[in-house]
Design a protein around this nucleic acid. Structure first.
Length: 356
DNA sequence: TATACGTGGTC
DNA sequence: TGACCAAGTAT
């Protein structure tokens, strides 16, 4: 079994590298802010989902200083729909920290990068390698897959992480470490894929143990995840005659923190355990009627079944404390997560009221 | 070390 | 259709 040749990977990369909005042309160094922004967005998120958000953020906040000066509410509304909202809060905090600690320039130093909010071991190494061409070794899901197959690592994730990191670091060449990191990720994303690896096209085919044994799909070995519990609740859609919908901001911590929501009963831990008197939780006293069907939304660690109750209120109805009426035309300025967009659509509140 | 934390696409 | 997956981090 020959040793994997990083030069063969770089040669493959020079031909097959993906063109992505945050990447520089071949041979150029990418803007650290672009790398930072894309790396945060790409955490547990597909390239396809990220591209429009990356473009929108860059248009709106062209530099890290612009982002640092933005109100958090605007950053959250621009992030709405991308998920994992702690990333948006940390992105903003990180921009402020880069301005305050480093004069608005990202440090070319993995340790200093790691000390910034929202930047963990992967992202610090990725920025160091990609933006500054430092010999850092970022290990993401792609690289875990490539490395575990290359070495037929039997140990299961996440316990195998230290071992995988060491094996990945061995591969980093002294020449073009930034391109090496991106090449490893491109290889994992386009050749060494989870379900149907294209081994015939892989520059690491010869040195790959899994390939030799025909056991590519076995790796990476992962420990089984626990089943998702179900939760249920009732969302209260109060719609004023002018079409405005009653919304409020969620608490500062926890799920969907600081995001906009449709008022609802507590999300009960067990199915069918909706409070006996749901109307007690309604944000205003009104004629509530249950809408047919429900909104189902699957989070990372539980699934939610939201029934929707709707009440139509007279024009001029004031919002109760802690809530506000928002016109559909202003929804884009709200930090509305996908779940809440679904609720609004289910209740027909995402479009102007019918003229009568 | 285990758990919380979103969303949309795939097979 | 219900898992599983996608450039992880914070606690």
């Amino acid at each position: 079994m020959p040793a994997p040749d990083p030069e063969a990977l770089l040669a493959w990369y020079d031909i097959h590298r993906r063109r992505l909005p945050w990447r520089a042309e071949a041979g150029r160094r990418a803007d650290p802010y672009h790398v930072f922004l894309s790396e945060i967005m790409l955490q547990q998120t597909t390239v396809k989902a990220v591209v429009p958000y990356f473009d929108a953020f860059l248009r709106r906040w062209p530099t890290v200083a612009h982002l640092a000066d933005a109100p958090l509410e605007e950053v959250l509304s621009a992030w709405a729909g991308l998920g994992y909202y702690a990333r948006a809060r940390n992105l903003h905090a990180c921009a402020k920290a880069v301005v305050a600690r480093h004069g608005g320039r990202f440090p070319a130093n993995e340790v200093l990068l790691l000390d910034l909010p929202g930047i963990g071991p992967y992202t610090a190494a990725a920025i160091a390698a990609i933006a500054f061409n430092l010999p850092a070794s970022p290990v993401d899901g792609n690289i875990e897959r490539v490395v575990t197959r290359l070495h037929a690592v039997e140990e299961a994730l996440p316990k195998a992480k230290p071992r995988i990191r060491a094996l990945a670091a061995e591969l980093v060449p002294p020449r073009r470490p930034g391109d090496h990191a991106q090449a490893m990720m491109d290889l994992g994303a386009t050749i060494c894929t989870p379900k149907s690896p294209a081994c015939a096209l892989c520059p690491f085919s010869a040195p790959c143990r899994a390939r030799a044994e025909g056991t590519m799909l076995r790796y990476p070995v992962k420990t089984k995840k626990a089943a998702k519990p179900e939760r249920a609740a009732i969302a209260f859609l109060a719609v004023r005659a002018d079409g405005a919908v009653l919304l409020r901001t969620r608490p500062d911590k926890g799920l969907l923190a600081k995001m906009t929501e449709v008022p609802a009963t507590p999300w009960s831990a067990s199915e069918g355990a909706i409070p006996a008197d749901p109307a007690r939780h309604a944000p205003v006293k009104a004629q509530w009627r249950a809408l047919p069907g429900a909104v189902r939304h699957v989070f990372t660690h539980f699934a939610l079944e939201l029934s929707v109750w709707r009440a139509d209120l007279p024009a001029g109805t004031p919002a109760p404390d802690g809530a506000r009426f928002v016109l559909p035309r202003d929804f884009d300025a709200e930090a509305l997560p996908s779940l809440m967009r679904k609720v609004l659509a289910h209740g027909g509140a995402n479009r102007p009221p019918k003229r009568s």
